[in-house]
Write a protein that binds this DNA or RNA. Structure first.
Length: 185
DNA sequence: CCCTGATTCGC
DNA sequence: GCGAATCAGG
């Protein structure tokens, strides 16, 4: 199998959409591994996604003499290990951030400008039937809760309930894969 | 431990 | 060009 134009298109789309390499590999399937995805991403020149340059230390190159690849079934138990020798999807921290957060001069939350000060409540004013959606920095004295009306025992108001449960849609394909690695060893 | 992307380099 | 092995970080 090789990288067809169709696969490259899928790769670019998913990568730009913030999917992790292992997720894309699982999505394309057909023996495409996470490493293959990353390698292709580099060759396509779209590797630098969202990370800040200072986040990754500039490692010295040509300084890691690696033993020649001995064979397909021989590998030392080191760190990483090529993604676990078939490591698949589970955590996906890449989905946590947007693919365009590299230039954010205003770290202020969006809700802070949308919700008037008068509608927000402190933790002391918070009642059971009030929305507990956090606003701002919890370590700051300016920290407030939404305070919108919510049913007793319900955490959020209808508006924030949607936001809280929005990123719950794709948790399917990794189920079988994760079981394979669970039962091994 | 699990994961992530980055890089190297034999093929 | 491809991708496994490896590295480095969370």
């Amino acid at each position: 199998m090789s990288w067809t134009d169709e696969r490259v298109e899928t790769l670019r789309k998913l990568w730009a959409d913030g999917h992790s390499a292992s997720q894309i590999a699982a999505e394309i399937g057909n023996g495409i591994t996470r490493n293959a995805v990353i390698g292709k991403v580099h060759r396509l020149g779209l590797s630098g996604r969202i990370k800040a340059p200072s986040s990754v230390a500039p490692r010295p190159r040509a300084a890691q003499p690696r033993a020649h690849r001995p064979g397909p079934a021989q590998r030392s138990h080191s760190h990483g290990g090529g993604g676990g020798g078939g490591g698949m999807v589970r955590g996906n921290t890449a989905l946590a951030y947007a693919p365009r957060a590299y230039e954010a001069p205003a770290p202020k939350p969006l809700e802070e400008v949308l919700i008037p000060m008068s509608e927000r409540v402190t933790i002391m004013e918070l009642k059971e039937a009030m929305c507990r959606w956090p606003l701002g920095d919890p370590a700051s004295s300016e920290f407030r809760y939404c305070g919108g009306k919510s049913d007793t025992g319900v955490t959020y108001c209808p508006y924030h309930s949607r936001m809280a449960y929005q990123p719950a849609q794709d948790r399917r394909r990794n189920q079988e894969k994760r079981q394979m690695m669970q039962i091994k060893g």
